[in-house]
């Protein structure tokens, strides 16, 4: 690990200023990913600006039922919050599906959104990786990619985004509040994360130095009927193979509205807009759910070793929807 200066400002504007003043500075949240990558030699910031005192760790329930979540809120606290558990069960389940009790106690909401891929090549500085070491190539394409992307990847990068929480927030259309050099602005998910294209080193649309200060979840009453299902090799404490966050608004025998997002399939938390469109107004039936999943998966281009994810996504989407509408 390269030596670094440590600062801990008490407010967001100071944090922004300190970051801007120091070349090679990075924000530090819970540290669960950044410290990990620094020790591996993947990242080598010269200054760490600890923002855990600069960002709110409060959760506010808005009158309309929406939530305002400070960027410094720890994953464990968010998962345990009564409003999250009651109104957005998919979010609580996504958080609780992630990592371990210890890591959830440390990880912050903003840090979780900004965590880096767990692609093995990305994490090994002795190997090429366009995301970590731009221009060096992507060995995953011809190498081990069983758990990498089937959607949205590019010739430059086939990594997946590792966050569970971000999948739920993507389904919920969360609004990310950012403090930027020119002032505050917002980004609505799924717009925060960007597809790799020919610049896989850029995970998000944020500019260097921008600081996430809060995540707002707009009111979505039917999200009380939602679910996050994570498929993984190990029964716990494992990154996702495939996951789905789904919410449905039933009206009589049809789906009035729905939200679906997928994890483990793309370089970003993947909002399944085609599936949602297929499902809106469709009768509540397994065949509808299957058509919706297939609609999303028409764009899938599995790699040599991860074709199983196509069938897996289809099954998991259908099952999650069946569970939500109470059909066994």
């Amino acid at each position: 690990m390269r030596p670094f200066v440590y600062r801990r400002p008490g407010d967001a504007r100071t944090a922004l200023a300190e970051l801007a003043a120091e070349p090679g500075a990075m924000y530090l949240g819970g540290g669960t990913n950044l410290v990990d990558l620094m020790r591996l030699g993947v990242l080598a910031p010269r200054t760490l600006v600890d923002v855990t005192r600069a960002c709110s760790d409060a959760i506010e329930v808005r009158p309309d039922g929406g939530l305002w979540i400070g960027a410094g809120v720890r994953n464990a606290d968010l998962a345990a919050h009564p409003a999250v558990r009651r109104r957005y069960p998919m979010l609580a389940q996504a958080l609780l599906s992630g990592a371990s009790g210890q890591i959830r106690n440390m990880a912050t909401v903003a840090g979780n959104l900004l965590q880096r891929t767990r692609c093995a090549y990305f994490q090994d500085p002795s190997k090429p990786c366009n995301k970590a070491r731009p221009g060096t190539g992507c060995p995953a394409r011809a190498g081990d990619h069983r758990n990498l992307a089937i959607l949205g990847y590019s010739d430059f990068c086939v990594a997946t985004h590792p966050s569970d929480m971000a999948v739920a927030l993507t389904a919920l259309g969360a609004v990310v509040h950012v403090e930027g050099a020119a002032g505050p602005y917002t980004v609505r998910m799924p717009g925060l994360h960007r597809l790799p294209g020919d610049e896989p080193e850029r995970d998000t649309v944020l500019e260097p130095g921008d600081l996430i200060i809060a995540v707002e979840i707009p009111a979505l009453p039917y999200a009380a009927c939602s679910r996050y299902r994570k498929v993984r090799d190990r029964a716990s404490f494992a990154f996702t193979v495939v996951s789905v966050a789904a919410a449905v608004d039933k009206s009589g025998g049809t789906i009035r509205d729905c939200r679906i997002a997928l994890g483990g399939v793309a370089p970003v938390p993947w909002r399944a807009e085609r599936a949602e469109a297929e499902l809106r107004g469709a009768p509540i039936a397994e065949a509808s759910f299957r058509r919706a999943a297939d609609a999303e998966l028409t764009a899938a281009r599995p790699l040599t070793e991860n074709g199983f994810k196509v069938a897996l996504v289809r099954n998991v989407v259908v099952r999650a929807l069946l569970d939500l509408v109470g059909v066994s």
Binding site: L28, G31, T32, D36, L48, T52, Q102, I103, N105, M106
Partner: peptide, 19 residues
């Protein structure tokens, strides 16, 4: 490496002492 920080369990290998 789990220890308790203010009573909460954390992995001390990812926790910077300076903080």
């Amino acid at each position: 490496c789990t220890v308790l920080v203010d009573g909460r369990r954390v992995t001390s290998c990812l926790t910077l002492t300076v903080a």
